[in-house]
Simulated assay, not measured.
Amino acid sequence: MAGRSYGQYCGVGTALELVGERWALLIVRDLLVGPRRYGDLKRGLERIPTNVLAARLKELQEGGVVRRVPLPTARSGIVYELTPFGRGLEDVILALGRWGFTAMGEPAEGDVVTSDSMTMAFRTSFVAEAAAGLPDTVYEAHVGDVVLALSVRGGALEVAPGPADRPDLVLTAGPGIRRVISGELSAPEALEHGTVHVLDGDPALLERFAATFHIDPGPAPVRRDDLAAS
């Protein structure tokens, strides 16, 4: 860790020394969903070289962010989980997700969606204040090959691998669901354009979904090419 010191007596600099290496925060993102075996992490981050994954896990352990623990069942084996110190990154990851949402654009060829990445995406876009004023609702969301159960009760969200038990609304969508979450498309427009399809339940509940999962995109990034064209 000392070899990557920025030489700055600063909390930001210290944080970057701990989790600023490539892939480190995506490992933390997946571990925020729950403990994972090494193979689970590799499957969820399919482009990470095995030697880099091993190196990042070692560094995160040395920094007190991640620890290795025995599986909490009769099965033998080891899983990686966040320490209490590491779990303190949750608000940081959610804030980064909201900030990066504006710059996402359309997916590039080969971009993947995983159960863990979508779990954190829904946690990132969840608006607790809006949900608290709405009836409890269970959604089953199909995004690509990922199926998640989104249980919204008492203004709190619980996300679990699907299918959901007695969902109020079952919906399927591709990456275009981002346009609903951003408010770029209203619920009726999303249905009309085929961005979202309702497989079961009352389509009117999609408006409740859009109010519950929302990110104000805020100002778009200004890139050098944009400035040159202006």
Rank of each mutant, 00 (worst) to 15 (best):
T83W: 10
T83V: 07
G86S: 08
G88I: 06
L89A: 15
D91V: 13
L94A: 01
L96Q: 12
G97R: 04
G97W: 01
G97I: 01
R98D: 02
R98I: 08
A103Q: 07
A103W: 10
A103G: 02
M104C: 12
M104I: 14
E106I: 09
D111Y: 12
V113S: 15
S115Y: 13
D116F: 13
D116I: 11
S117G: 11
S117R: 10
M118L: 13
M118C: 14
T119F: 01
T119K: 03
T119R: 03
M120D: 04
A121I: 11
A121P: 10
A121M: 13
F122I: 06
R123Y: 05
R123L: 08
T124H: 03
S125L: 03
S125E: 05
F126S: 00
A131H: 00
A131W: 00
A131M: 01
A132S: 06
A132T: 01
G133S: 02
G133L: 02
L134I: 02
L134H: 07
D136I: 08
T137E: 05
Y139K: 02
E140D: 06
A141W: 08
G144A: 05
D145F: 09
D145A: 13
V146A: 08
L148S: 02
L148Y: 01
L150I: 07
L150F: 03
S151N: 13
S151I: 15
S151E: 11
V152I: 05
V152S: 00
R153N: 07
G154Y: 05
G155Q: 02
